[in-house]
């Protein structure tokens, strides 16, 4: 088990994967509904504007004047490439995984460019500004810009396959799932705290002047932003200064409901932190009760707050409210 000095000496912060993932579904309103319903039917719909001619995709408003637009027109499906970028090494997120172009395609009858992909089989020499292209439609379409797999040279294009089952309802929303992966760095101060947890220690940092101890260390005293380089071990026993009993589910929280979320003020520290209380009847939870960390088994200790499985009551007399009222 490492000493605090050893932990502080290890400068390299911890890193770990962080994922943000959500299946966003967007209601599209009356104008984009026309566009997406058209795509599902294998048609391209634009809208006429006063200042920019026929806009594709259609907008609800003129881009210069913000006046509302409702004069829809069918355009394309063929058109010409106005400009393009050649993507020789597609990124993992992108929909074509061989070299392709992102291009602005001005569809016949439209006055603005539609941003999409052009697939020329990976051969950049087939790309040119002004080239004629047409959509390569998906067979199964849902009402999305992705119903067009890509634009292709006009000669290679085929008409849109008929819709397999014609739904009555216009398209009302579009799914735009998101998954972002981050290589999260915990930072130096936080890493000292986390590594200490793997050694069953809880480490705080003294405020400049030493009058107050922050757990976890925050790098600075948040009042003054002065650095807090002086680390100190605090007890794994503490006092519940306030709490709530949570009965509402959440995607990212993995405790069985209901659970008790406590603000616990550890002995030797001056700031409470959030954790859960277990092995306690809900009706017994109270302000001022004494609790102690229940640590994971030695082989399960990690550089994470998960090393403290939960807090649990201990057989010590309650602390009177007057003694901790400044901390809650």
């Amino acid at each position: 088990m490492a000493t605090i000095e050893e932990l502080v000496a290890r400068a390299e912060p911890l890193k770990g994967p962080h994922v943000i993932e959500y299946p966003f579904r967007r209601s599209c309103g009356p104008v984009l509904s026309k566009f997406f319903t058209g795509l599902r039917e294998g048609k391209l719909i634009g809208v006429r504007s006063e200042t920019a001619g026929v806009l594709v995709p259609p907008a609800e408003y003129d881009p210069q004047t913000a006046e509302g637009l409702t004069d829809f027109v069918e355009v394309g499906p063929a058109g010409k490439v106005v400009s393009y970028a050649w993507v020789s090494r597609p990124r993992p997120m992108q929909l074509l995984q061989h070299p392709f172009a992102y291009a602005l395609v001005e569809l016949d009858g439209a006055d603005t460019g539609l941003l999409h992909m052009v697939d020329v089989g990976g051969d950049e020499s087939k790309m040119s500004v002004g080239m004629r292209v047409a959509p390569r439609w998906k067979a199964e379409r849902e009402g999305s810009v992705r119903d067009i797999e890509a634009f292709v040279p006009e000669a290679e294009a085929r008409p849109a396959p008929p819709v397999i089952a014609e739904p009555d309802e216009p398209v009302k929303s579009v799914a735009t799932p998101l998954r972002l992966e981050y290589d999260f760095t915990a930072g130096r101060e936080q890493s000292i705290f986390l590594r200490a947890l793997a050694s069953k220690k809880i480490v705080g940092a003294r405020s400049p002047g030493g009058d107050l101890v922050y757990v976890p260390p925050r790098g600075t005293d948040p009042r003054t932003a002065e650095p807090t380089p002086d680390f100190v071990e605090v007890s794994d026993k503490g006092t519940v200064v306030t709490y709530s009993i949570v009965r509402v589910p959440s995607e990212n929280i993995h405790f069985e409901l209901p659970y008790v979320c406590i603000n616990v003020l550890l002995d030797g520290s001056d700031i409470p932190f959030f954790h859960v209380l277990q092995n306690c009847e809900l009706t017994d939870v109270r302000l001022g009760m004494r609790v102690q960390a229940s640590w994971a088994a030695d082989e399960d200790l990690t550089e994470s707050v998960e090393s403290i499985r939960y807090f649990e009551p201990i057989d010590e007399p309650d602390v009177p409210f007057e003694q901790f009222k400044e901390y809650c």
């Binding site: 967007r26 393009y84 992108q94 992102y102 291009a103 941003l115 500004v129 810009v145 992705r146 735009t176």
Partner: peptide, 23 residues
């Protein structure tokens, strides 16, 4: 980018700027 019609195609800013450069 436009969350309805552009982000679902995942163009990166390098590509969009390349379209601008070519124009």
């Amino acid at each position: 980018l436009d969350p309805y019609c552009v982000t679902p195609l995942w163009p990166d800013l390098d590509s969009l700027s390349a379209i601008q450069a070519r124009a």
